[in-house]
């Protein structure tokens, strides 16, 4: 939030993170084609699915596919030197306000000056703006989302008394995790009915194994076992595990295994302990892991 608190670190990250190579993404269904069509028609997209299912990776992959180098800007960052900034990801949290997205006046040596927020930047340069976990943000952000997602494609900047017409390349993509948030934080219908929704589930065992082995470099058999473990643990979803183990965690476990950590130990630190603090469920998961791995 604070641009004065950690300026060096944030700006550094912006400069560093430009994905030059194609992000690895294994299509599970027709989501790639759907997104391409949606982008062509400039229809806003809602990505639904549990954490670690690959939503963010998908957006990066699509941004790359749509022939745009990708830049990640973290929330309410200050300046950035890039003109072409086609993908702006904003991780939403419960204190994220509209001005965090639009911009604000900052103090200067002799007065104040206006700094655009990430959304404003995206609108101006025509980028894909990806609002991750959008329901977490405060309700006033919807005021911004609505005019941007219908035929108007406008961003009102109240404090400047301006209205910005979105550049041609602009597209709003939001993500949302139906299982995770409490009932209070459900997405309002007036908001969700402005997007087409692409649903992300965990991939089937075979494909998940492929992803794990690609991302972690562990061998195929290990990856298959990890995918199997993932599948089994997800069966315990309602037992305080939120949504079960994410592909991301399975990949972490795979990486540890690749580096020679024994499989059971890798699963313990990357999966069991990461998932829950409940001793009984931990034990149960561990039993599943010890059944699968020798």
């Amino acid at each position: 939030m604070s641009d004065t608190a950690h300026p060096a670190a944030t700006i550094h990250a912006v400069e560093e993170y430009t994905v030059q190579d194609e992000p690895y993404y294994l299509p599970i269904g027709d989501e790639v084609a759907l997104f391409e069509m949606a982008y062509e028609q400039r229809i806003p997209v809602l990505l639904k699915g549990p954490t670690g299912a690959g939503k963010t990776r998908f957006v990066e992959y699509m941004a790359y596919r749509l022939a745009r180098p990708v830049t990640r800007v973290s929330t309410a960052t200050g300046k950035t030197a890039e003109h072409r900034m086609p993908l702006i990801t904003v991780a939403c949290h419960e204190d994220l306000t509209a001005s965090d997205l639009v911009g604000r006046y900052l103090l200067d040596t002799d007065g104040t000056h206006w700094v655009d927020g990430p959304l404003t930047r995206a609108v101006k340069v025509g980028a894909i703006c990806y609002l991750d976990e959008v329901v977490e943000a405060r309700k006033d952000t919807t005021v911004l989302i609505h005019p941007l997602t219908d035929y108007r494609r406008l961003l009102p900047i109240e404090k400047l008394g301006q209205v910005v017409e979105a550049a041609d390349g602009f597209l709003l993509v939001i993500s949302y995790n139906p299982g995770y948030q409490s009932a209070l934080k459900d997405l309002k219908h007036s908001t969700r009915q402005r997007f087409i929704a692409i649903e992300f589930g965990y991939p089937p065992r075979e494909q998940e194994a492929e992803i794990i082995s690609h991302e972690s470099g562990c061998d195929r058999a290990q990856a298959l076992d990890l995918a199997k473990l993932g599948e089994k643990v997800r069966n315990l979803r309602e037992h305080g595990l939120g949504e079960g183990v994410s592909t991301r965690l399975l990949i972490y476990a795979g990486r540890l295994m690749k580096k020679g950590i024994p499989a059971r130990r890798a699963c313990q630190v990357a999966i069991t302990w990461a998932l829950t603090d409940d001793a009984e469920i931990q034990r149960s998961i561990e039993e599943v892991a010890t059944s699968i791995f020798e």
Binding site: K232, L236, H239, S284, I285, E287, V288
Partner: peptide, 9 residues
């Protein structure tokens, strides 16, 4: 523990 184990399986 066994119940959750069996449920997972």
């Amino acid at each position: 523990i066994l119940r959750l184990y069996c449920k997972a399986l």
